[in-house]
Nucleic acid binder design. Structure first.
Lengths: 345, 345
DNA sequence: TTGTACGCGTTATCAA
DNA sequence: TTGATAACGCGTACAA
């Protein structure tokens, strides 16, 4: 059986007004605490509205105001411990400012990413926060979004110089630093397990790695560089490839683009009957919740995920509410966490 | 500078219609693939709409149809590895059915939970999925929600017999089973680190623990039962309390209400200079991503988190789209995962 | 202080 | 096949 009025169970201003014999405007004013309402009528209205279970219809409000108080959040992989922390930060700030968040998970698939954004746009979100999985050279998709005027802030995986703010970390410097840490420990034969280099963190971190080698006069051995995805299975696969090299042509240390990849690689090393750090030193990036618990605790770069989320949400909301808010690229500071996997004593 | 028309950069049906000199209805029909449009005009319209960058305004559509294709998801703690998996399952099903999800994180706070639900209701979500943190006896809040006709499905932490479906796991049986596993290994002095027993999983799991003791003729020692929250720090705190007992009055094995609590307790044990399982055997619940990596890998109950999410979303959407969909209480099957923390050989 | 008219963008309905 | 009108629920602008 359907409701006579399509509005599900919900009470409208008009229904409250009719019940009291006043106009909808008076009810509206009373409920929104506008000054020009007689105190007695206000009380009557509030009482009745409450009894009738009135809740304002934000859909109608949004249609009039072109403001939904909703923001879209697009992330590549909610299972990585980094992202739930980011989302927590986003949610905290958003709620404080009375926004709700639409969450979409793209599973590292750019096509799904685009579809999600179209859905969010159709829902008329006030803005979107994106950690992009785009692996193409062509940034016109995001350029169009930004040109259209939809407020957009990238976080973690950014697309630079196309007119959107970005909240990330110092990927280049941190990657250089952790690589130098390996070099300083005496490792010279160092391999790199990369993610797609078209993705910002893929490029930045790899470049940091190369910069460290150059600075110390070490050569980049192309055979020791693999390019796969950002998950455990990708790390496992990449490391398996390196393990197929003849023993004297293998690297002695490994830098992984992130912790899930490092963790996958460690599994491949273990299965090959070898040990970390005795046979391979290895370092990661992101300080996954599992990093310190690995059989050989993983040396990595700690990222302030919660702060990234808060900062990104805050920047987006400022951009939404004030279109003179400047575009900026923020790099939050990471911290090198030295554990045993790099051969630390 | 503001837009003349408040609709941000978005093109409307009317604008497309004016550009072609047809009525909005014709444009609407063309775009929605209704049959009664001349094929030539349809083509002209689609072409122009596309060129102008038309995207339908779902807010306006929702106002007319009283349907938003949005569902609210309320979870207690997104940082627990269990919940991101659930959310992933929810998102997968929801997207397939063209729904978007509003995510809210309550940090185990019932007041925040209620506020989130009010916000979601004001946004006129088509339904909500809730894992409740309510710790009161009085269920009238949810009774009112359900009576109001807002489709609601609980998952993981349910509130029973008040007219909503619930997708959970066999908490009672699994808790009994894992407790019996300890008993069968010869442990007789068994303590319990509980969460709030007003929360469904708190009660079910504790009752399962007690049932196992009873079945084997063991007494429940009240001193060995603590009631705290569901996080690591709660487990740490609870275990610290037990460790203050004189050595001969301490339990020899511990059942924790979930893995985060078990992990916190293990930390307390380690800090006290004692070992798992040598000094204390311990088991958890939920198969946290860290469980197998603990210094003494944690024996626990694996929950099909992703399946819980898919099933919950699927049930909610069915309930939304067909109000004759029966109320049901589903218990998905868990699996006992035996590792070393229970003294397994 | 209170009420009336109108518009936000869309679709259902009925008329042409 | 196409168009005009009304309605969804609310708030702004103006009138009483």
């Amino acid at each position: 059986m359907k409701n006579k009025k399509g509005n599900n169970g919900n009470v409208t201003l008009k229904e409250v007004a009719d019940a009291l014999g006043v106009s909808t405007m008076t009810v509206s004013r009373a409920i929104n605490n506008k000054p020009n309402v007689d105190e007695k009528t206000r009380e009557r209205i509030l009482k009745t509205a409450n009894e009738m279970g009135y809740t304002p219809n934000l859909v109608a409000k949004s249609l009039v105001s072109s403001k939904t108080y909703s923001i879209g959040v697009v992330i590549p992989e909610i299972s990585h411990s980094f992202f739930p922390e980011v989302v927590k930060g986003i949610e905290e700030i958003a709620n404080k400012e009375h926004y709700q968040i639409f969450l979409t998970n793209t599973s590292e698939d750019f096509e799904k990413e685009k579809k999600s954004i179209e859905a969010l746009r159709a829902k008329r979100v006030d803005g979107i926060l994106v950690s992009s999985s785009q692996t193409e050279e062509d940034f016109s998709y995001y350029e169009k979004i930004i040109d259209s005027g939809l407020p957009l802030v990238f976080f973690d995986r950014c697309i630079g110089n196309i007119g959107a703010s970005c909240i990330g970390v110092n990927d280049f410097a941190a990657s250089q630093q952790i690589t130098e840490h390996l070099i300083n420990r005496g490792y010279k034969k160092i391999g790199y397990l990369s993610g797609p280099k078209k993705v910002s963190i893929g490029k930045e971190r790899f470049d940091g790695f190369v910069a460290a080698l150059n600075k110390h006069g070490l050569d980049l051995n192309e055979k020791w560089v693999t390019e796969n995805g950002y998950n455990e299975k990708d790390g496992y696969h990449a490391m398996s490839t390196l393990l197929k090299l003849p023993e004297n042509e293998r690297p002695r240390a490994i830098v992984a683009v992130n912790d899930p990849v490092a963790i996958g690689a460690m599994e491949a090393i273990r299965e090959a009957g070898m040990k970390v750090p005795d046979d391979f030193a290895i370092v990661g990036f992101s300080d996954d919740i599992r990093a310190e618990l690995m059989p050989s605790p993983l040396t990595t770069v700690h990222q302030p995920a919660y702060e990234v989320g808060k900062k990104a949400a805050s920047k987006l909301i400022k951009t939404i509410e004030d279109n003179t808010e400047p575009i900026e690229s923020v790099q939050l500071i990471t911290k090198l966490i030295i554990r045993k996997s790099c051969g630390s004593s």
